[in-house]
Simulated scan of single mutants.
Amino acid sequence: MSTLRFLRTFVAIAEHGSFAAAAERVALTHAAVGQQMRALESELGRPLFSREKRSITLRPEAYQLLPQVRQLLADYEGIVAGDKTENNVAGHVSIGAIVSGMGLLSKCLVEVAQVHPALEVTLATGRSSDLIVRVGSGELDAAVVIEDSRRPFRGIGWTHLYDEPLVLLANRGQIRRKDDFDSLLETSPFIRYDRATATGAQIERLLRRVGTRPRQILELDSILGISELVRQGVGVAIVPMLAHSGWHKDPALRVFPVPDGIYSRRVGMLEPSRKGHITGIIRRHLVGIMSNPC
Rank of each mutant, 00 (worst) to 15 (best):
L4M: 13
L4T: 09
R5S: 13
R8A: 10
T9R: 12
V11S: 04
I13H: 06
A20V: 15
A23E: 00
A23H: 02
E24Q: 13
R25S: 14
T29Q: 11
T29V: 05
A32D: 08
Q35A: 14
Q36L: 09
R38D: 14
E41K: 09
L44D: 12
P47F: 08
F49D: 04
S50I: 01
R54H: 10
R54A: 07
S55L: 03
E61A: 12
L66H: 09
P67W: 04
R70L: 07
L72H: 12
L73E: 07
I79C: 11
T85Q: 13
N87P: 00
N88F: 08
V93H: 03
S94K: 05
A97R: 04
V99P: 02
M102S: 14
L104V: 10
S106A: 12
L109I: 10
E111A: 14
A118W: 06
E120W: 03
L123F: 01
T125M: 01
S129R: 11
I132M: 09
R134V: 03
V135N: 11
V144I: 15
V144E: 07
V145N: 02
I146K: 00
E147F: 12
E147Q: 15
R151S: 13
F153S: 07
R154W: 13
G157N: 13
H160E: 12
P165H: 11
L166K: 10
R172N: 08
R177F: 10
L185Y: 12
E186L: 09
F190M: 01
F190N: 05
R192V: 00
G200P: 07
R205C: 06
L207F: 03
R209S: 11
T212E: 01
R215C: 09
L218K: 13
V230C: 01
A243C: 03
H244Q: 08
S245C: 02
P251L: 07
A252N: 07
V258Y: 11
Y263D: 14
S264P: 02
R265W: 04
V267I: 15
M269Y: 04
R274H: 06
H277M: 06
I282D: 08
I282N: 07
R283Q: 07
H285F: 10
P293M: 06
